[in-house]
């Protein structure tokens, strides 16, 4: 819908400036931007990149957890995990739908993902080696995602904000189910406890990296803050995450794998050790443990689904023609 995103310059060189002024004034008044409204091309592009990356992350994010649906250790856990991964497919679709209001069809975004041009959250390039990883993902990765996403429900772009409201509402059980798995394992047999600790050891730093590079290095932070596409900086959100998770890990009786982690009485915040940003950039660039497998799984699903999509399109065409005739 609403694909008329052209700049629509009508021979008046000042028109764009005037519109940009009106656009900024609207942001200042906290009036949402809606899809057919005029917007600066850079705003549109930034939004499209952010929303489609977010959508890709949901879709690729189905894979590491999906890996354990068939092996979930109880029928209740299986049902919960299945419902959760299903939500991720749904959230990917809500987000693609929001991104499509910016004038780019979903298939184009998906093609960009498959070609490696578009990015998705680096966290999903790590392997899920044990059942506890499903718990760690729910607890840490969804926990981080919630902190990231809640502010976006107030972002300046209406379709994105609305999609995020829906997503946040639905995701409220995701983090809890993860914590619940960790709790059960941490209080289970010594073997299970070790499994939980191992999962925390492997997922902690990737989760910390989910908030993106430090503010000092972040390219998009400032402009996105001005446009109200982001409402807090990467480091602010990361701090919030650490402050929430550290006490939770203590309740679990699990140890955060950071010897430098300490409580700062003066700032009333936890301080973490040095993040290995080289690893972060390496995984983003494509050299994480599972980048190839994740992308290939999505490409295979698409390629092997081609004949199905073609068949349904052909069926629809034949029957539309018949009903007209």
């Amino acid at each position: 819908m609403y694909t008329q995103m052209s700049d629509g310059i009508d021979g008046n060189p000042n028109a764009a400036d005037e519109r940009e002024g009106a656009f900024n004034a609207r942001l200042d008044r906290a009036v949402k931007i809606e899809s057919p409204d005029w917007m600066p091309e850079a705003y549109r592009k930034t939004l499209l990149r952010q929303i489609s990356q977010h959508a890709h992350s949901e879709i690729v994010g189905m894979l590491p957890e999906g890996n354990w649906i068939t092996r979930a250790p109880s029928l209740q856990r299986k049902a919960i995990l299945l419902a959760k991964v299903q939500d991720e497919a749904g959230h990917g679709l809500y987000l693609y739908s929001a991104a499509e209001t910016l004038g780019t069809p979903r298939d184009e975004m998906v093609a960009a993902l498959h070609s490696g041009k578009a990015k998705y959250s680096s966290i999903f390039n790590y392997p899920t080696l044990a059942w506890a990883d499903v718990g760690a993902i729910g607890w840490l990765v969804d926990g981080a995602a919630i902190i990231n996403q809640i502010p976006i429900t107030r972002c300046s772009y209406g379709p994105y904000a609305r999609a995020m409201v829906r997503i946040c509402k639905e995701e409220s059980f995701h983090q809890r189910q993860g914590f619940d798995i960790m709790w059960t394992l941490a209080h289970g047999t010594p073997e299970q406890h070790a499994m939980a600790q191992d999962a925390l050891d492997r997922w902690w730093w990737p989760a910390v990296m989910m908030f993106g590079p430090p503010d000092s290095e972040s390219v998009h932070n400032e402009q996105s803050l001005r446009w109200k596409i982001k409402l807090f900086t990467n480091d602010e959100l990361r701090q919030k995450f650490v402050d929430q998770v550290v006490p939770q890990s203590e309740r679990l009786g699990l140890k955060i794998p950071d010897p430098d982690l300490r409580w700062n009485e003066a700032t009333q915040h936890y301080e973490i050790g040095q993040v290995d940003w080289d690893e972060f950039y390496r995984v983003i660039r494509g050299d994480g443990p599972c980048n190839r497998e994740r992308l290939q799984a999505r490409i295979d699903a698409w390629d092997e689904g081609t004949w199905v999509r073609d068949a349904a399109a052909e069926y629809a065409r034949k029957h539309a023609a018949r009903s007209v005739a």
Binding site: L63, I69, L75, L82, Q86, G90, A297, T306, R309
Partner: peptide, 28 residues
Amino acid sequence: CAWIGHAPVMEEDVALANVSLDLLGQAR
């Protein structure tokens, strides 16, 4: 449930999960 994440179209991931969840509920 082994289809989830690999369906021919994303809408179908959601649908197959629904059917699988229903059947799992019945099985329980």
